[in-house]
Design a protein around this nucleic acid. Structure first.
Length: 199
DNA sequence: CATTAGATCGTCT
DNA sequence: GACGATCTAATGA
């Protein structure tokens, strides 16, 4: 299936709602995306990995749109983004939640701790795990094997709010760049950034 | 359901 | 050396 590249050359904040309802397939699992977050480059978004410019980790964010930006965090988790903006400019959409529409058995093998089907891809690290995406997939073109990405024919209805778990200036109401589909069980619960423990 | 603590290590300063 | 675009298990109401 083909992906409209021109669409993905827009900033992540524009692309994010267009990814709701999109279908992503990898390693035997097909996911319908229901929740995403946008992160910009250019030093305007303190919550973004690209805020302080290009580094080894965020290199993919500065590459061509339509590729995967996968990063390792919290010492044990991998999260997946769709790279946006033209080549050389950094922005990306974090995949935060989705519904497994095919390959549930396969997803369950990877998510042994999931209590229910709706929890299989409810949360960015869970979603990435369910799809079998790893750091080795960073930078790959999402329109080519082993991936397959199909955008919805019609934009979906969506709601917006502050991003989850983003500390500092990038969090809160100043950056309402979380987008989700209403009444979807696979949308992760909103969590404000955890306050740093004293000392 | 809500809250809390612990895990765990690559990345950037 | 500190922190993180998180998750799970455990505990209490």
């Amino acid at each position: 299936m083909s992906v409209d590249r021109a669409l993905l050359e827009q900033p992540a904040t524009q692309v994010a709602p267009l990814l709701l309802g999109a279908v992503l397939t990898h390693a035997g699992v097909t996911l319908r995306i229901t929740e995403v977050e946008a992160y910009l480059g250019g030093g305007v978004d303190p919550g973004s990995h690209a805020f302080r410019g290009q580094t080894r980790r965020n290199t993919s964010m500065f590459g061509p749109p339509g590729r995967l930006y996968a990063y390792f965090t919290y010492g044990m988790h991998v999260c997946a983004n769709v790279v946006c903006s033209p080549d050389g400019e950094a922005s990306a959409v974090l995949l935060r939640g989705g519904e497994i529409v095919d390959g549930i058995a396969e997803a369950r093998l990877r998510r042994t701790s999931a209590a229910s089907d709706r929890d299989l891809a409810r949360g960015p690290a869970r979603l990435t795990r369910a799809l079998g995406i790893g750091l080795g997939d960073d930078g790959l073109d999402l329109a080519l094997p082993p991936f397959e990405l199909t955008l919805p024919a019609e934009p979906s209805e969506f709601l917006t709010g502050p991003r989850t778990g983003v500390r500092g200036d990038g969090g809160g109401a100043g950056f309402p760049w979380r987008f989700w589909m209403p009444a979807e069980a696979s949308v992760s619960p909103y969590r404000p950034a955890a306050p740093r423990p004293p000392k």
